[in-house]
């Protein structure tokens, strides 16, 4: 005899998802909209926001600036994570880019047009060289080193009084108006998301993923994984050092706060909330973490309490991250299927 023992949830791809899986099978406007819609909405929102200065006020424009900065750092974190390297010190990259452009601009008078790209590259090379000896470490051991390095650099600058010491370097060349500035950093963020996603679709990117799954088998396939990890660190450093260099010119100042722990913690929180591995999730995460923190300022002392609770709800409720959750809801529907058990 069969008895009904309850229900289980079944997830099924929507018809439109199945039809649009293959890019050549697109037949209708509705299907094109299904594919392009979410991307278009995201990009449009990002492009329109800087134009709404009169409505949002300069304050929220600045919040967007910080958000995009954290998004770039979060993208960087997500790439490292995809190779199996957990970074607790994104501030290293940020600070390296920030100090590099500060030095080039103040000492040699390089304009930001030259100094920012140069600082992006130099900062990334510097960070890669610094982390190279510890790339063979894994998991928390690598994380602890990256945690210590920004603090170490901070103290070195403080003690030796190089690069302006505790005073920092001020009076740097400003960036053009906030609207153009925002468009530049938004464009860089979007290019970075796209670039990273494409990278991971190539065979070269597949090696990164493989190192995370089982580095021993990658060695046994004839790859020098130390070299691959170094390349990953360099590629991951680029958006982060750019963010550092860019924000430095925005503030016209670089100092010890460039190595602040915020730049290490917020990107990590962003990726965990947004969902690792997709890059777009990292970006979405930053767009929740940073504005939420600003929005809660009206709550005064309770701000941190509410902030922590919201983050907690996200982590517990959506452990795989917001992006993967939204994508699943978008692509699949759920239904309850009765479970039947055979009674003996």
């Amino acid at each position: 005899m069969r008895i009904q023992a309850g229900f289980r949830k079944e997830r099924i791809d929507r018809g439109i998802k199945a039809r649009t899986d293959d890019i050549f099978a697109i037949a209708s406007c509705r299907e094109i909209l299904y594919l392009v819609g979410p991307r278009f909405l995201l990009i449009a929102a990002l492009l329109i926001f800087p134009l709404l200065k009169s409505i949002t006020g300069i304050y929220w424009q600045n919040v967007l600036m910080i958000t995009a900065t954290i998004a770039l750092l979060a993208l960087s974190w997500d790439l490292l994570h995809s190779v199996g390297l957990v970074s607790l010190g994104q501030a290293l990259f940020f600070g390296a880019g920030a100090y590099a452009t500060g030095y080039l601009n103040s000492k040699f008078g390089w304009s930001p047009v030259l100094a920012i790209p140069a600082a992006t590259l130099l900062g990334a090379l510097f960070s890669t060289a610094l982390l190279y000896p510890v790339l063979r470490l894994r998991g928390i051991y690598f994380g602890l080193i990256t945690f210590a390095v920004p603090m170490l650099l901070m103290r070195i600058i403080e003690a030796t009084k190089i690069l302006g010491g505790t005073e920092g370097i001020s009076g740097l060349t400003p960036l053009p108006g906030i609207t153009i500035t925002l468009y530049i950093i938004i464009a860089v963020t979007l290019v970075c998301v796209y670039g990273y996603q494409r990278l991971f679709e190539t065979d070269y990117g597949l090696v990164f993923k493989a190192i995370r799954d089982n580095d021993r088998s990658v060695i046994a396939a004839g790859f020098n994984i130390q070299l691959f990890k170094a390349q990953a660190v360099f590629l991951a450093a680029l958006p982060a050092t750019f963010a550092g260099a860019f924000l430095t010119h925005h503030y016209q100042f670089v100092g010890l706060p460039a190595f602040a722990m915020d730049y290490s913690v917020l990107p990590m929180a962003s990726v965990i909330i947004g969902g690792p591995g997709s890059f777009i999730g990292a970006m979405l995460g930053a767009f929740i973490v940073v504005p939420l923190s600003e929005f809660l300022r009206t709550f005064g002392t309770l701000r941190i309490v509410i902030y922590s609770l919201v983050l907690l709800v996200f982590v517990v409720g959506l452990p795989q991250g917001l992006f993967h959750y939204l994508k699943r809801k978008y692509d699949q529907f759920e239904r309850l299927v009765p479970i039947e058990e055979v009674e003996k």
């Binding site: 597949l206 993923k209 493989a210 995370r212 799954d213 089982n214 021993r216 088998s217």
Partner: peptide
């Protein structure tokens, strides 16, 4: 001996 595939692929 302990064969481990690349799980996520």
């Amino acid at each position: 001996q302990m064969a481990k595939p690349f799980y996520n692929m």
